[in-house]
Structures are given as C-alpha cells and as structure tokens.
Design a protein around this nucleic acid. Structure first.
Length: 627
RNA sequence: GCCACCGUAGCCUAGCCCGGCAGGGCGCCCGCCUUGUAAGCGGGAGGUCCCGGGUUCAAAUCCCGGCGGUGGCUCCA
C-alpha cells in the first residue's frame, strides 16, 4: 500500500550562503542606513575591531520560511565546525547580500542573521555582529593558511524519517458508538477496565502500551501440524511453503478478497510486473529511501538490476499516470492481487505475521476530491468491517489522523463509528506522518493477546499529484486525484488470524466456509467405502473419506485433530436407515438425511466463496507432509 | 539489526548441567485384527545429534564462529 515518492530536490529551492575567513582582525564601520531596511543600533556598535576572529559573511537567499529553523541549525553547525577547525577565538557575523544573486526579502534575512547570532551566543561563543542594512566600510586581514578561506552553501539537510517521526506528538481518543468522544489525558495511566470492548482493551495494552505477551502464538506450531504452511529452509527466511490444505484455505481467502473487490465493489482487476527497473529514478529513489528493505534481481549478464516490488503501487501508479481520466470516470477502483516482497530485518520476521514474501489483495480508489474521497473511505470501511465480522475473529478498530484532518473530518468520523456499533481508538498526530490524512486499521487479537493489523483504509491527499495522476474536471482543468488505498490485509496474516482465533478455544474450529476439510465420512469397515465415496461426491463441499484400515475410534480422533467440521460415521445402520449421524465440533451428534445435510451445508456456505478440495478423496491416497 | 532462549529420525521429545554404546512415543512399512463416535496388537526400517572449527584418549554433551527458529526491542515506507 505504499508509494513511489518523488521527493522534490532541496537543491533547487532554498539555501543560505556563507563565506568564512579566518582573520588576524576584522574591522568595520557602519556609515549610512539603507532606507527601510536598516536596524537601529547603538552608537558603540557602529564601529568595531575584532582580533583573531572567524569572519562569517552571510547572505540569505529566497527561502521557504517553513524550513528556517533547519537552515539556521545547519548553518550554525557548519560555522562551529570551521570555528573549531581553524581554532579561532571569536566569531563576527557579517550580513553580506553580495554572495547571492537571488536574495531573500531583507526582513527574512535580518531575522535569520539575528537568530544565528543569538544561537551562537547561546553556545557560549564570543560572537559579534555587524549591523544589518547599513552601508559599511570594512577591513580585514586574512591569515592565509589553507583553511582560512572557505565558502559554504547551506542546504537544509533533508530530515531522516526518525527525526520527522520524533517531532510528531500524538493525542489519543476513544470514540464510542453512542457518539461520545473521550480524550485520553494520559495513555499510560488510563483506566482500561472502563473499556467494554475486550478487543480494544487488549489492542491498547499490546500495541499502544507495549505490555509483554505471554509466549509464542499458538498458530506457529499449528500451521505446521495441520499441514497448512511451513518454513522452507531452501529459500530465504520469511518465504513460506504452503501445503495442499493450506493452499485450499489460502484460495478461499483469495476468492473472498476478490469477491469483495470485484463483485461487491465493482473494481477492475489488473496484473502488473513483480520486478521494476532499478535505474528508473523514481523507483530507485523510493526503494533506496526504504532502508535497503527490498530484494534486488539481476539479469544473468548483470547489466540490469530490478527491485522486487514491495507493494502493488509501482505498476498501478505507472499505469494510472498513463491513463486518461475524466471526472465522469471517478471514483474508480482498481484491484490487484499482489504478491509482494519486503526484505524485513531478521528479527522482525515472525510466523505468518510478518514475512518477506506475502500476498496482498490491494484496492486503490481514485476520487475527484476530498468529499468523494471521504465517501469512498467510509464505503470501504463498512465493507471491511462487515467482512471482518464474517470471519468471527476478535478485532479492534483503530483510526489515525493528522490533526488538521481530524478537525475537519471529526463529525463524519464519529458518525461512521456510531454506525459501526463498535468503539474505536483514535490517534491524532500533530502533523502528517506519511501520505495519508486519515487511516483506519482493523487490529486482530491473537491467542497471546498480541495484535496484528489486517484490513486498512487510507485517505491519501498528497500522492496523486506527486505521481502525476490527474483527471480532467468539468471545466477542462487538470486536477490531482484523491487516492484511497485499501486492503483486507495479506492472505498470510488472515491465515494467522483465523488460526489464532480458532486456537483460543479448547476445541479449535475454523469457520465452515473457510475450513479446508468441512465434512469427513468414516466407513465402519471396507464394505462401506464405496457408499461413502458416492455420498461424498454428492455434496458441494470439501468432503473426504477416511478409507484407511484402522479403528473407527482412531479415525475420529484423527478427524478431530484435523479440525474437520462435521464427521459422519457410516456403516450397516446408516445404510439401512438412510440417516447420517453428523458429529459437530462441539461433540453433539445430529441425525440427518443426505438431503438435509446438503441443505445444512448450503446454509452454512451462504454467499461465501467456495473452493473445491483438490486432494485425493480417499485419505489412504494422501501423503503425509508433516509428521 | 540488537538482546535472550532454542535446534537430537518425517513429527514430538529423553539424554546435555556432571564428556564414555543415541533412548522412547507418534507417523511410515509388514503381519494379525474387521473395527461404531478421541489412540486395537505384534514386528521392522529409519540418525550429518543444525553447520564449521576448537579443547580432549574420547564431544549430542564443554568452548568459539555461523545458519535457522521463537520471544522482546527497533522497524512495519
């Protein structure tokens, strides 16, 4: 869900020039004030002679006032660096517009020079300043050693992510379904017992307060024992092997994701390449800005390098940049089932929760304006909530928003939470951290009380113009789209969440529609295998037949350990009566005819997607993959 | 990436602290049993004790380095 970020080049925008001269002395005299610019000064500051000084001539160029502090800081760091290297005793700041041919407004320059002066003084450096806005006479004697004459151009160092993030402060709220918005004064000290929604409470403890979990999530062993997913030692860490039964579960989830996107939301599906040319400037810039967290693929002759995509955005945005869009087309939704790769650091990989290779159903909506964007955000939120509810997993609803957008969208957001009937935790950030104005997260709670993010919806107000994704409005003007990024979350994480939810119970159960094996027939002995095969083939469900030559009790035990939803023992009695004893996970047995069973299956399946079981019908023909 | 713990047959594991023939259960194969709602009985095959190095007469065991897994930290664009 992440983006190509074409950052503007700071070189072209703002800077400050310095000329640094290590002097035996510098002497100046203010002669005449420049009209409208000159600062008022004491008589005794009009004429100064400063020995053993580092003379710093400063000119301020057209600058962006929003970056002023950064520029000053960087300039001070440079001056002090030279000051120490040349071992000067004091500093003289000398405003000198002539170093540039595109000077800033004098008021800005004056303010910046004065601030620099004050900062240097605050660092206990003996510092003097020539008055601003006067015609001055000056004289100096340069020492002439190699470092005695230097010029520096100050470019505000683009801030690292850490710095930007460190400057952002957060406030927290809980929005209740009755419309109440509770401001949390102190997250550390808040009374969690007052939160009725258990998942929300667990989420806050786990993610926001970092309370330690009790141990290894149960799915880590279960995924292997159930022959769903396993580690692949012959690959890189975090690249999993998926067994046939895992593939069934995987494909049901994929069908579900596609059904939501393509049928319910009428998105258009696309397929884009996995690898992207490393020499494309925007791709390279984006990839490099991401801490080397990507795989590189080289051609055999090593003449070309490609980056393995870490999200669907690469191909999608390239495609949309080339597309011609009219306001009449909007909003449009584009879906891609995107296998993605992220080179997560070794300690960050974990079970099915965090992988280096994963499958992300990715849905992007392109909208005309913020109103349409919000409508889309709300629509997607409703869908994802309904669908998350359908899996029966325990989850918390979280929103994050930049302050300006929280203020702007607050009423609408509260209405959305009211409508959802579930309280939501919201983090309000002092400024925008990424591209989104507001985002939503569905946070599932695992068997150990830990949390993992599944679905997300993000309202992106900045990226479209940056990527060159435009539409033509009713007046024929080119305008940037509002992009809503969203996903139900990776298929792997869904497998994790479904298993974790099942494992919270004493007798784990996967919801019928997701379960790899839904019904198992157990013939009492060889004489009934053929009948069972025939019955199994009549039901549109994932059904199999345990035809192994072992005791019925043993077959039942195996079926239970495999979490089969319904077990049917079939022998003489059943053949005679036509009634099937269907054993459910809770242990109770219901007698029903084959027609009644088929009806029950239909009910349970409802409108969920169905994927057949692509495994031998007879258990005796199946290999054991684990154990 | 950092810290801690772990790595013995396809799977689960005993043995490791205190160096001396690698043991059990599941699964698999063979045979018997013909099975009725959570493990029927007997036999057999199966080992690079994660990898590399070191100490020692002798290393699964002790030491060093690596790889892999899990948890925590950080991170999650």
């Amino acid at each position: 869900m992440n983006c190509l970020r074409a950052l503007h080049n700071p070189l072209e925008v703002e800077f400050l020039r310095l000329l640094l001269i290590h002097t035996d002395y510098i002497e100046f005299e203010a002669k005449e004030p420049v009209k409208g610019i000159a600062e008022e000064i004491d008589e005794n500051l009009k004429h100064l002679r400063v020995p053993e000084a580092l003379a710093v001539f400063v000119s301020v160029e057209e600058d962006d006032p929003s970056n002023e502090e950064d520029i000053i800081e960087e300039a001070i760091a440079n001056i002090i660096d030279v000051f120490k290297k040349v071992n000067a005793e004091r500093i003289v700041l000398y405003p000198y517009v002539h170093l540039t041919n595109k000077p800033s407004h004098p008021e800005d320059a004056k303010r910046i020079v004065i601030k620099m002066f004050e900062k240097l003084r605050d660092k206990d450096i003996e510092v003097y300043r020539a008055p601003f806005g006067w015609y001055k006479a000056f004289e100096l004697k340069c020492k002439g050693h190699p470092l005695s004459e230097l010029s520096r151009t100050i470019i505000p160092r683009p801030k690292g992510r850490e710095e930007i993030v460190a400057e952002i402060t957060s406030e927290y709220y809980i929005i209740y379904p009755d419309g109440r918005v509770e401001h949390i004064e102190d997250l550390e000290k808040m009374d969690l017992s007052s939160i009725e929604d258990k998942a929300l409470r667990l989420y806050i403890e786990s993610e926001e307060l970092g309370i330690e979990r009790k141990g290894t999530p149960l799915s880590v062993n279960a995924m292997r024992r159930l022959e769903l997913v396993d580690y692949e030692p012959a690959s890189d860490s975090g690249n999993m092997r998926i067994y046939p039964k895992g593939a069934v579960l995987f494909n049901v989830l994929v069908s579900w994701a596609k059904k939501i996107a393509l049928e319910d939301l009428k998105a258009m599906e696309i397929i884009t390449p996995l690898i992207y040319d490393w020499s494309e400037p925007d791709i390279r810039e984006q990839a490099e800005s991401f801490h080397e967290r990507h795989y590189i693929v080289k051609t055999p002759d090593e003449r070309k390098k490609f980056v393995l995509r870490f999200a669907a955005d690469f191909g999608l945005f390239k495609m949309m940049k080339d597309a011609t869009l009219s306001y009449k087309n909007l909003p449009i939704r584009i879906f891609e089932f995107a296998r993605s790769f992220r080179y997560e650091r070794s300690g960050e990989i974990s079970g099915l929760k965090r992988l280096r290779s994963f499958h992300m159903p990715d849905l992007h909506s392109f909208c005309a304006d913020i109103e349409q964007g919000w409508e889309e955000f709300a629509t997607l939120f409703r869908h994802y909530k309904r669908l998350t509810d359908a899996t029966g997993i325990e989850y918390a609803i979280v929103f994050r928003a930049a302050r300006e957008w929280w203020e702007r969208l607050r009423d609408k957001l509260v209405d959305l939470v009211k409508e959802s009937g579930k309280p939501a935790f919201i983090e309000v950030l002092s400024k925008m951290k990424h591209y989104w104005a507001i985002k939503n997260e569905f946070q599932a709670i695992d068997s150990m009380g830990g949390n993992v993010q599944l679905a997300t919806v993000q309202l992106d107000v900045v990226d479209a113009a940056r990527y060159g994704i435009y539409y033509i409005d009713a007046e024929g003007q080119k305008r940037g789209c509002i992009i809503v990024h969203s996903s139900i979350g990776s298929i792997e994480r869904w497998i994790y969440a479904v298993l974790e939810e099942a494992l919270k119970k004493e007798k784990p159960e996967i919801p019928f529609w997701l379960s790899p094996i839904q019904i198992r027939f157990i013939p009492v002995n060889d004489d009934y295998v053929e009948d069972c095969l025939k019955l199994a083939s009549e039901i549109r469900a994932r059904v199999d037949v345990d035809d192994r030559d072992i005791s019925v009790a043993k077959k039942i035990r195996d079926a239970e350990r495999e979490w089969v939803n319904m077990i049917v023992v079939y022998g003489e009695k059943e053949k005679a009566s036509g009634k099937l004893p269907v054993r459910f996970r809770d242990g109770h047995i219901e007698e029903m005819t084959i027609e009644e069973l088929k009806e029950r299956v239909k009910e349970l399946l409802g409108s969920y997607p169905f994927v057949p079981l692509y495994l031998p019908l007879r258990l005796s023909l199946r290999p054991k993959f684990v154990g």
